[in-house]
């Protein structure tokens, strides 16, 4: 009995393999189509943030240009090098890495494939010490997060000053993921603008040391809420969803980050936007137009690569005017939000 069953399993297995081998393989492109490979970081496509936005940028490019866009989600840090290498070895026209976590992998792979173009969100191709290798085939897509942080910081400051927040104790806060430059840029702009609008304001800053687990950010947020914070700015990716939830449960306001997080929780009054979709689209557009260049491209309010969205809150006309005024000043360069968190 065992033998016949085994034989059946063997036959089934071989049949499955043969079927798989003969399976569909006819997706040959007709004309010159630009092949774009997108590698997400461990957040995955459903992060409602960076990776999602990068994918949106790719999708838009697919409708506008002759582009074949393929996406691979990295399940762990072990996947970065193989995933980038996979696209590069297949001679893709542009390989995009999402996120600074991929910097070292990007440095390694871009060095091995000098004839393939790479772009990386929020980082560069670096060696193991995180020194930019400045490979001419790598384009860094950076953001002035402080621009976006300043807009939501200004909103928070104005609400506190006009006593339109929930507790009006003059305390707001930010929850960072890990204390790294992109996170601190956001918080720097936030604190700077809030203080500018309401000089007496107190801005609490905490870190969860995590970008994925909402529970950890919820803890940090709960502490801040018990310290009378009533507007909480999350700068912690997927972990930060816990901040939005904590704010919702405590009946205070929260501010989303990177993407428009209006739907993540009713407590979200605004979101600081890092337009990764614009950056991704621009990088692809450059390749299609033959204008790819190594080095850094910075996206900010002036080139519509950073900004903010008002979410589940209707602001008064004077607040809107103040925000528009600040945005115009940053755009014109008369005001420059700081990159480092002010004391």
């Amino acid at each position: 009995m065992v033998h016949s069953r085994l034989r059946f399993l063997g036959v089934a297995g071989v049949a499955l393999m043969l079927l798989a081998a003969c399976g569909s393989s006819n997706n040959t492109p007709a004309a010159k189509v630009y092949k774009i490979g997108l590698v997400t970081d461990i957040g995955g496509l459903n992060d409602k943030s960076f990776n999602h936005l990068a994918d949106l940028g790719l999708e838009k490019a697919k409708t506008d240009f002759k582009v074949q866009g393929d996406v691979v989600e990295s399940k762990s840090g072990d996947d970065y090098v193989p995933n980038l290498t996979n696209f590069a070895s297949k001679k893709y026209d542009l390989v995009i890495g999402v996120g600074f976590l991929m910097q070292t992998a990007m440095g390694t792979v871009s060095g091995q494939f000098p004839n393939v173009n790479f772009a990386i969100i929020d980082g560069a191709g670096t060696d193991a010490n995180f020194n930019d290798l400045k490979h001419p085939n790598v384009q860094s897509l950076y953001f002035s997060e402080q621009d976006a942080g300043a807009m939501v910081g200004a909103l928070a400051g104005l609400l506190e000053k006009q006593n339109k927040a929930k507790k009006n104790a003059g305390v707001i806060s930010a929850v960072g993921g890990i204390s790294i430059p992109p996170v601190n840029h956001y918080i720097a702009g936030y604190k700077w603008a809030a203080t500018m609008m309401d000089p007496g304001i107190k801005v609490l800053v905490g870190y969860s040391n995590d970008f994925t687990d909402p529970a950890k950010c919820k803890n940090v947020a709960a502490n801040q809420i018990s310290s009378k914070a009533d507007i909480l700015f999350q700068v912690a990716g997927g972990c930060g969803l816990g901040v939005l939830q904590a704010a919702g449960q405590a009946g205070v306001y929260s501010v989303g980050v990177d993407a428009d997080q209006k739907d993540a929780d009713p407590s979200v009054i605004a979101s600081a936007l890092k337009k990764v979709d614009v950056a991704t689209y621009t990088a692809i557009q450059n390749v299609v137009n033959g204008k790819f260049a190594g080095g850094a491209l910075t996206f900010n309010i002036a080139n519509d690569g950073a900004g903010y969205a008002l979410d589940n809150l209707t602001v008064s006309a004077d607040i809107q005017t103040a925000l528009d005024d600040l945005k115009a000043k940053i755009k014109a360069g008369t005001l420059t939000p700081p990159a480092d968190i002010p004391a």
């Binding site: 490979g37 393929d70 193989p82």
Partner: peptide, 19 residues
């Protein structure tokens, strides 16, 4: 583990299938 990425890149099936 290694195949999941290729599956997603070539066949467009989420590599979560591997998990």
């Amino acid at each position: 583990h290694a195949g999941g990425s290729v599956m997603q890149a070539d066949a467009g099936i989420s590599s979560s299938l591997v998990q």
